[in-house]
Write a protein that binds this DNA or RNA. Structure first.
Length: 424
RNA sequence: GGAGAGGUGGCCGAGUGGUUGAAGGCAGCGGUCUUGAAAACCGCCGUGUGAAAGCACCGGGGGUUCGAAUCCCUCCCUCUCCGCCA
């Protein structure tokens, strides 16, 4: 949710920032719904004030033993009117919410302007794509040849966009999870294991709802959803709480599976691990003071990059332009890893500062000092990293001509010290 | 799944349908005293909205009533016991 005071007082500014994202929204309807809401509330409060005063008087008269039946009948009319007004207010409130909750966050001033991903800006590159003396194969080919990835059998039980990892493939996936969690733990992130199913309120808080319900798996009859990212359950940890300044920043890392319908992505890569309905991810989440959030985004991005560096995988950092930002994000860096089979960089992490957008929806606040007014925290999160895609990058970048795959030094320890996966 | 108990401010804990936004205690903050600290004493000490007055909030929602933290319904959550189970 964006700041309503900002919307009221600087409508043109808000409109221009939203326009920068390419969001065509009739702000006037939101603003008038907001005005309706305020005036209706005001009227209701006036009525309630009168009600309270007169009720108190009746109470007094009753205690004095006087006859109050006439006053009572009189007040019944007001009481009924208040009830009507209350239900009218509820409707107005709902109309306002339905408009306000679908407004995306405003891009930070520092975000480059642009319409689509074509205008994203490369910030830096790390490592050199390896030159192969043979035609590098795709991870699907490598994995199926080695017998460590089996998409056909996964499809028997679950359909397209699911994977069966086998033997060393499963080990590597598990090794990557442990390796990443340990790396982040050493950098001061508190490891958490969260629920993988959350309620509607939690999803609305981080911004997945109400707008993107089609992308989520909903549990029949429960009004609960499978999380599409650990961001949801981790960010919700402090929902509705007021932290003390000393508790900030809070830094969390979490491994969770992620579930996404990937509706409308049918034109995109359908084979392999790149786009799955269920995938594993280690996520980094921070809560910080407003003035620290940009620095925390930079360091969180660096922490995610460190994983790629330790895996010795070439990557680049791209800053998303205004037109490519996600719904809740104010500023985003994508990490893209080099995939030889595609001869290009592919997204493996997305690190964003959400400003107070999620905190406002979730009611996550902090107090600078005891007695001070609570202020909204800022939330920052990023993948650190997507496990399946990291495995893809390893298979492709570490492949040998004979079809075997070397295991990066930093994960060997997590794979019973084996250094290569080859055909048995 | 069955039976019961309960959800009040940061925490504990009172609360008769009507000056209760809510006693009391603890914690916290400020002060007096002290060389300093402790103790003692005094004061402050919820959130939202609003410029303010005000209004709202005692798990959520609905109802009864002139008036609800207090009565009724419903949902959610927590705890205990039984069953089942990793």
């Amino acid at each position: 949710m964006i700041d309503l005071k900002l919307l009221r007082n600087k409508k043109d500014y808000v409109a221009s920032r939203l326009a920068a994202r390419g969001t065509e929204i009739a702000l006037d309807s939101v603003i008038s719904a907001d005005a309706d809401r305020m005036s209706a509330t005001r009227e209701l409060e006036e009525m309630r004030k009168r009600m309270n005063e007169e009720s108190a008087e009746i109470g007094k008269l009753a205690r004095e033993g006087k006859d109050i039946s006439a006053r009572r009948r009189e007040l019944k009319t007001l009481s009924d009117a208040i009830k009507e007004k209350e239900s009218a207010c509820r409707e107005i409130e709902e109309r306002f919410n339905s408009l306000a909750l679908v407004l995306p966050n405003l891009p930070d001033e520092s975000v480059p302007a642009g319409k689509s991903e074509d205008e994203n800006v490369e910030i830096r590159k790390w490592g050199e794509p390896k030159q192969f003396s043979f035609e590098p194969k795709s991870h699907v080919e490598i994995g199926e040849n080695l017998g460590i990835l089996d998409f056909k059998r996964a499809a028997k039980m679950s359909g397209a966009r699911f994977a069966l990892y086998r033997g060393p493939g499963a080990w590597l996936e598990r090794a990557l999870i442990s390796f990443m969690l340990n790396s982040h733990g050493a950098n001061g992130y508190e490891e958490v294991i969260t629920p993988f199913m959350v309620n509607r309120q939690a999803m609305t808080g981080t911004g997945q709802l109400p707008k993107f319900e089609d992308d989520l798996f909903r549990l029949e009859g429960l009004d609960m959803f499978l999380i599409p990212t650990a961001e949801v359950s981790v960010t919700n940890i402090y929902a509705g709480e007021i932290l003390s300044a000393g508790e900030l920043p809070r830094r969390f890392c979490a491994y969770t599976p992620c579930f996404r319908k990937e509706a409308g992505s049918y034109g995109k890569i359908a084979t392999g691990l790149i786009r799955q309905h269920q995938f594993n991810k280690v996520e980094l989440v921070k809560l910080s003071r407003p003035e620290d959030s940009m620095a925390e985004l930079e360091s969180l991005t660096a922490d995610a990059e460190l994983i790629l560096q330790k895996l010795e995988l070439p990557y680049r950092v791209v800053e998303l332009c205004t037109g490519d930002l996600g719904f809740s994000a104010a500023k985003t860096y994508d990490l893209e890893v080099w995939l030889p089979s595609q001869n290009r960089y592919v997204e493996i992490s997305s690190c964003s500062n959400f400003g107070d957008f999620q905190a406002r929806r979730l009611g996550i606040r902090f107090r600078r000092e005891s007695g001070a007014k609570p202020e909204l925290v800022h939330t920052i999160n990023g993948s650190g990293l997507a496990i399946g895609r990291a495995l893809v990058a390893i298979l492709e970048n570490y492949q040998n001509e004979d079809g075997s795959v070397e295991i990066p030094k930093s994960v060997r320890h997590y794979m019973m010290d084996s250094d290569i996966i080859k055909k048995p």
